[in-house]
Design a protein around this nucleic acid. Structure first.
Lengths: 239, 239
DNA sequence: GATTGTGAATTACTTCACAGCA
DNA sequence: TGCTGTGAAGTAATTCACAATC
């Protein structure tokens, strides 16, 4: 019994995953004073094909001008609004170890309308400490913090062994969007959106490709069938 | 001119992205003394459908037993070998700020056969410091380190503004697999595998879904067309 | 003339459903 | 009998290619 992969007519998942990238590129162009951009240029900068880009934007009811391109400022507004940039998405970070601290101090939150408003940790030795201008609160106050501060997103930066419990706790507190950095597969009830970023998974994927490259180059005894001379760059994001 | 999405008969990208997850779950089962597991159970724990799991494993020339399931130890070996676990993938971390330090101290590397063997930073104030048992080296020594230590993967933990230069440097040093944490779209030559993990992108995706949920629940003036009452959990990894 | 927006074709991925085997 | 492995069917995403538009 798994998630019934949408289908309801909104924006395709693959498109949603690229919107933040477009927004970032567009913002950069805007800051550099670029007024309009063609789908070709924008696609190149974002690392996708131009047809993909145009189709993606068309899902948002695009604002381009035929024969000219897209007005950068206008498109920034538009994509930003679709991503919810007009509102502020309040975030709680759970687990204030070295990763949690790095995330708390990370400056890249603001551009997409998210703001860290609370830090919690289960270790009494850490509670009360000030990190990135915020006092670390005990885990027991999670529910209260979520309710009072209007937190909508939880970022889990706890060890693998503590992740499921931490996840259950934030879900119980009413959180419906969770981003986990813990190297375990978390189970969440239907209706809770879970994304999971894991260093070892990413490295594993890179190692697989490196390995295949080596194998096809004849350096290693090829254990995998197939005869692919393909190289190919690519990939990223939240696939 | 973009990466011509493989096609050469190896293992599908989507499958590769799930292999590390399977390996992690299997390793966990093994440690808990589980000897065999059915595709149904394994799929549930990994958060995918059982048909997907079976098809994924079949791409590796699977080792299951009909009527019984998969022998955990055997499958761990097999998947691990496919992911290159038999070899050691040496990693250099570029940029020893708070994120770089957190990554250097991260214990989750080993399970997938990767090991951090070098740290470099461009800031003279950081060079020479010891982090996680390694001395931080100057950026100028990147090429030498990569060559002498046999580094195959570079992890970029530098600020956005420095990321493209850092990327160019490691590529020039001969690296063909790059994992970037910087919130910019990096350009790499064909043949270099780039994956990019970005906090603000992930949060942006979550915000989009939260927002759509709110809009369809009638809390917000629905700006997006469509009438999706869908909830659905899901997602993660690289995707 | 240039570039968007989009139906149609293609390709990739998932899911179904069942034959084949322990 | 129970569960894997896999063709066939179905769905989603990408790419092509061109008509519509400035």
């Amino acid at each position: 019994m798994r998630a019934p992969r949408d289908g309801a007519r909104g924006v395709p998942d693959a498109t949603v995953a690229r919107l933040p990238v477009y927004l970032r590129v567009l913002t950069g162009l805007g800051e550099r004073g670029v007024a309009t951009v063609s789908s070709e240029e924008l696609a190149l900068a974002a690392g996708v094909g131009s047809a993909t880009l145009r189709k993606d934007l068309s899902h948002l009811g695009s604002y381009g001008v035929r024969g000219v391109g897209y007005e950068v400022a206008r498109l920034v507004q538009h994509v930003g609004r679709c991503l919810g940039l007009a509102e502020e998405w309040r975030v709680v970070i759970v687990g204030i170890g070295s990763l949690g601290r790095a995330l708390a101090n990370y400056s890249g939150f603001a551009p997409l309308g998210t703001r860290v408003v609370a830090l919690v940790d289960s270790d009494p030795a850490v509670v009360g400490e000030r990190v990135a201008g915020l006092e670390v609160l005990p885990s027991s106050s999670t529910a209260r913090v979520v309710g009072e501060l209007g937190v909508r997103i939880a970022v889990l930066a706890v060890p693998a062994g503590a992740a499921q419990a931490a996840c259950d706790a934030v879900v119980a507190a009413g959180i419906t969007s969770v981003l986990s950095f813990a190297p375990v597969e978390l189970q969440v009830p239907a209706g809770v959106e879970l994304r999971s970023v894991d260093l070892s998974t990413e490295l594993g994927i890179l190692a697989f490709r490196e390995r295949r490259r080596a194998a096809t180059a004849g350096e290693l005894p090829g254990e995998l069938a197939g005869s692919a001379p393909r190289t190919g760059s690519s990939a990223g994001g939240a696939r």
